[in-house]
Amino acid sequence: MNSITESSSPYNNLEKLSVQELLEGIHNEDKKVLPAVEKTMPEIEKLVTELVPRIKKGGRLFYVGAGTSGRLGILDASEIPPTYGVGYDLIIGIIAGGDQAIRKAVESAEDDENLSWQELQKYNITEWDTVVGIAASGRTPYVIGAVKNAREQGILTACITSNPGSALAKNVDIPIEVIVGPEFVTGSTRMKSGTAQKIILNMITTTLMIQIGRVKGNRMVNMQLTNEKLVERGTRMIVEELGFSEEKARRLLLMHGSVQKVLEESGKG
């Protein structure tokens, strides 16, 4: 298989370039990401369309990855509960090497094809769950093992990869192949490939949260009030929506715990 993600960078002698030249080169490569993502829109739409009813029936979304890909899956999963007020068991990120691999690389962790399925089984995975494998190369054994075993069990599977026709893509129901081309630094898929993954993960979960009713208008009405900034934001939402004074809005927000609950109590939820 021709590996685009391992292909030589179109730039050479990087160490001889000025800071300006390096930054311009990186930026010019980054410009290729959005058009590549746009080409995958039909596959992203298909995934979310199939994902929504599964989540409504009690299913969960699992991200499985290694290295940068695994970290991005965990990042996306960890941001959804405070942003939309859902449980931490709705979207779950799993990384080769376990939690310690979030900060430091764990040697050879991604080479075990059976380990990921063993870890998924700890969550009592069911037919309503969805497994998305994330791997820029499309050949990471740990990720392939997860989707391969899940698919054999009738579980919906998808992947995000930056190489066409990969082993990973061949083992999922919905392959999202976002072809961003060779990296500025040859093989450094934390760059364009990682950026594309982050964009697509944002699209998947944001659309999912809106579809299952966690947004009203364009507001995060179910966000957790974890700091003063968010309390102030929630207070403004209630003032704008219900016309209450700021003092009353803040009091009701802190009493009920979310903007959505205040709106429901006021008959506008």
Rank of each mutant, 00 (worst) to 15 (best):
S8W: 09
P10Y: 04
L14A: 04
E15Y: 14
E21C: 03
P42C: 12
E50Y: 12
P53Q: 10
K56H: 11
G58K: 07
G58A: 10
R60M: 12
Y63Q: 07
G65K: 04
T68K: 02
L72D: 04
T83R: 01
I91N: 11
I92H: 09
I92D: 09
G98F: 11
D99F: 11
D99L: 14
A101I: 08
A109T: 11
D111I: 07
E113L: 13
S116Q: 06
S116D: 09
S116R: 06
Q118C: 09
E119Y: 14
K122N: 14
D129H: 06
D129W: 05
T130C: 14
V131C: 09
V132T: 12
I134F: 04
A136W: 02
A136R: 03
G138T: 05
V143R: 02
I144Y: 03
A146D: 10
V147A: 09
R151L: 13
L156K: 04
L156I: 07
C159R: 02
T161N: 11
N163R: 03
L168A: 07
N171R: 14
D173Y: 11
I174Q: 04
I179K: 05
V180C: 07
S188N: 06
K192Y: 09
K192M: 13
S193R: 03
Q197G: 04
M203L: 15
M203S: 13
T207W: 03
I210F: 14
Q211Y: 07
Q224D: 14
L225G: 01
K229L: 00
L230M: 12
E232N: 01
G234E: 00
V239C: 00
V239I: 13
E246A: 10
E247R: 12
L254H: 01
Q260W: 02
L263F: 12
S266M: 15
